[in-house]
Amino acid sequence: MATADDFKLIRDIHSTGGRRQVFGSREQKPFEDLVDLGWLKRSSVDSRATHYQITERGTSAAL
């Protein structure tokens, strides 16, 4: 179930172009929650960072 923080984060991601790069596993937790909701997808993972991209469902949630 989505929380107020989830909606705040997806709106922030949407307003800044729909993509986010995250460093460190602790910082990934809120983004992984949005992946579980179907609002974000992991577009790539490298040794230092994970890249996320907003989905259509995420765009709808952000509006």
Rank of each mutant, 00 (worst) to 15 (best):
R48V: 14
L34T: 00
W39K: 00
Q53D: 08
H51M: 15
S15A: 14
A61E: 05
T16S: 12
A61Q: 05
S60M: 14
G58A: 01
D5Y: 08
G58P: 00
R11K: 11
R19H: 15
D5I: 06
A62N: 02
D5M: 09
S15T: 10
S47G: 14
S43W: 10
K29N: 05
V45L: 07
K29G: 08
H14W: 13
A61M: 08
S60Q: 14
D12G: 05
H14Y: 14
D12Y: 10
W39Q: 01
L9S: 02
S60K: 14
S47I: 10
D46E: 09
H14S: 06
T55K: 01
E32Y: 04
A2C: 08
G17H: 05
Q53N: 07
G24P: 07
R57F: 09
A2W: 06
G18E: 02
Q53V: 14
H51D: 12
I54Y: 00
S43C: 14
A49T: 13
L63A: 06
R11L: 12
D5A: 12
Q21Y: 13
M1S: 11
D5L: 09
L9C: 05
L34R: 00
Y52G: 01
V22G: 04
A4M: 12
E32M: 10
S15V: 10
E32G: 05
T55C: 02
Y52R: 01
R20V: 15
S43Q: 12
S25D: 14
I54H: 01
D36A: 14
S47A: 12
I10H: 00
E56Y: 07
I10D: 00
S43F: 12
D12K: 09
I13R: 00
I10A: 02
T3R: 08
G38T: 03
A62L: 04
F23M: 14
F31R: 00
D6M: 12
S60I: 14
E32A: 08
K8Y: 08
T55V: 02
I13Y: 00
S25W: 09
T59L: 12
Q53R: 07
A49D: 06
R19L: 11
D36R: 13
S44G: 10
T55Q: 02
T50M: 08
I10P: 00
G24V: 07
K41Q: 11
Q28G: 06
F31W: 04
R11Q: 09
T50G: 05
S43G: 10
T59C: 12
R20L: 10
S44E: 11
S47N: 11
A2F: 06
A61P: 01
D33K: 15
S15G: 09
R26D: 15
S47F: 09
S60G: 09
P30K: 08
Q21D: 13
H14C: 11
G38N: 04
V45P: 06
A49H: 09
K8G: 06
R57W: 10
Q21P: 07
K8L: 10
H51C: 15
S43D: 13
F7Q: 04
G24T: 07
S60N: 12
D5W: 07
G18A: 02
Q53E: 15
Q28R: 11
R57A: 15
W39H: 01
T16V: 06
E27C: 15
S15W: 09
S43T: 15
D46R: 07
F7Y: 14
T3F: 05
Q28D: 05
R57L: 15
L9M: 05
D33A: 15
A61N: 04
V45I: 11
F23S: 15
G17Q: 06
F31L: 06
T3D: 05
L34Q: 01
V35P: 00
S60P: 02
V22D: 03
T16C: 11
L9W: 03
F23Q: 14
F23Y: 11
R20Q: 05
F31Y: 15
H14E: 06
V22I: 09
V45Q: 12
K41V: 15
G18L: 02
Q53C: 09
I13A: 00
T16Q: 10
R42C: 07
A49Y: 12
R42E: 04
Q21F: 11
H51R: 08
G18H: 02
T55R: 00
G58S: 01
L40N: 00
T55D: 02
L34K: 00
D12S: 12
D36W: 09
A62Y: 03
D36I: 13
S15Y: 10
T55P: 00
G58N: 00
D6H: 12
R11W: 12
D6Q: 13
E27R: 09
T59P: 01
D46T: 13
D46F: 04
A62R: 02
I13W: 00
K29H: 06
L40W: 00
Y52E: 01
L34A: 02
S44H: 15
I10N: 01
G38F: 03
S44V: 12
F31V: 02
F23V: 15
A2R: 04
T3E: 04
R42L: 09
T3M: 05
S44L: 13
I13F: 03
S15M: 13
L37D: 01
Q53S: 09
S47T: 11
Q28N: 08
T55E: 02
F31I: 03
Q53W: 08
D12M: 10
E27L: 09
V35S: 02
A4Q: 11
T59D: 04
E56R: 08
E27F: 09
D12W: 12
S44Y: 15
K29S: 07
F7I: 10
P30G: 05
T16A: 11
H14M: 12
E32S: 07
G17P: 02
Q53G: 04
T50F: 08
G58V: 01
E32H: 05
E32L: 08
G18T: 02
Y52V: 01
V45N: 08
Q28V: 08
M1L: 12
S25N: 11
R57E: 15
I54W: 00
S43L: 15
I13V: 07
Y52C: 01
R11T: 07
I13S: 00
L40A: 03
S60A: 15
A61S: 04
R19C: 15
I13E: 01
D46N: 11
E56Q: 10
S43K: 10
D12Q: 11
S47W: 08
I10F: 02
S44A: 13
F7S: 03
L34P: 00
Y52D: 01
A4R: 10
T50P: 05
T59V: 14
F23P: 12
A49S: 15
R20Y: 07
K8M: 10
M1W: 11
D33P: 05
P30W: 05
K41R: 12
E32N: 08
A49I: 11
A4I: 11
G38M: 04
G58Y: 00
I54P: 01
E56M: 08
S60V: 13
Y52F: 04
L34G: 01
R20E: 04
R20M: 08
A62G: 03
